[in-house]
């Protein structure tokens, strides 16, 4: 049986370790790169290495950054009395896109999920508690609206409420472009509870 030569097989194997990439996709990516000029592979390889070497976690908000503290934590226009707590660095981007939040962030790097072995000590909660030094007046919990996200928010809230900060939570309700008929009862019940005067 004809097998793939070692250098090619090795790259296929590396690609296949990435999330969402199965053996077939890994093969396609590898053979695509094989057909491109050597320069493209070098650029890709350099980008990969540079990405790891040139990034650190911001010592304050734990977001991924190239300069510590990160641009948001350094910014002069940010409101330092409000911290928005999110699960992942990508969530910071999502909230920044709204342009309606001017405070600081805190990235937990996960949510409590016992069935996948993520416990309280595996997420960056202690680091958040350490940041609540008196200047911070409000903490907004912006975890995902899933059971894991909600339990995490509840855990964090129980922990920091006694420290005298206002703890709030993103509203739960209906998404834009959604349809009432298809809404589940928990979402709909929360949308009703959180209704606002027009």
């Amino acid at each position: 049986m004809q097998t793939t030569v070692e250098p090619v097989a090795r790259l296929i194997e590396e690609f296949a370790k990435l999330p969402g990439i199965g053996p077939k996709t890994a093969q396609r990516l590898t053979f695509h790169l094989l057909r491109l000029p050597a320069e493209s592979s070098r650029t890709l390889a350099e980008a990969l290495v540079h990405m790891k070497e040139a990034t650190v976690l911001c010592s304050s908000c734990l977001n991924i950054t190239d300069k510590d503290p990160c641009a948001i934590c350094r910014g002069d226009v940010r409101d330092r009395t409000v911290i928005c707590v999110v699960e992942e660095p990508l969530d910071v981007l999502a909230i920044e896109r709204t342009r309606s939040f001017k405070g600081l962030y805190h990235v937990l790097h996960g949510a409590i999920d016992p069935l996948h072995g993520v416990g309280v000590d595996d997420i960056k909660v202690k680091e958040l508690v350490r940041r609540l030094d008196g200047e911070v007046r409000e903490v907004i919990l912006a975890t995902n609206p899933s059971l894991q996200g909600e339990s995490t928010a509840r855990y964090v809230a129980n922990l920091i409420q006694p420290m005298g900060v206002t703890v709030s939570h993103l509203a739960r309700g209906l998404p834009m472009g959604g349809d009432l008929e298809w809404a589940d009862e928990v979402t709909l019940a929360r949308a009703l509870e959180g209704r606002r005067p027009m």
């Binding site: 899933s146 059971l147 894991q148 998404p175 834009m176 472009g177 959604g178 349809d179 298809w182 809404a183 589940d184 928990v186 979402t187």
Partner: peptide
């Protein structure tokens, strides 16, 4: 996706 018609009906438990 936030607009999924399944998501809310398929939460844990």
């Amino acid at each position: 996706r936030t607009t999924s018609r399944l998501a809310g009906h398929l939460e844990l438990f």
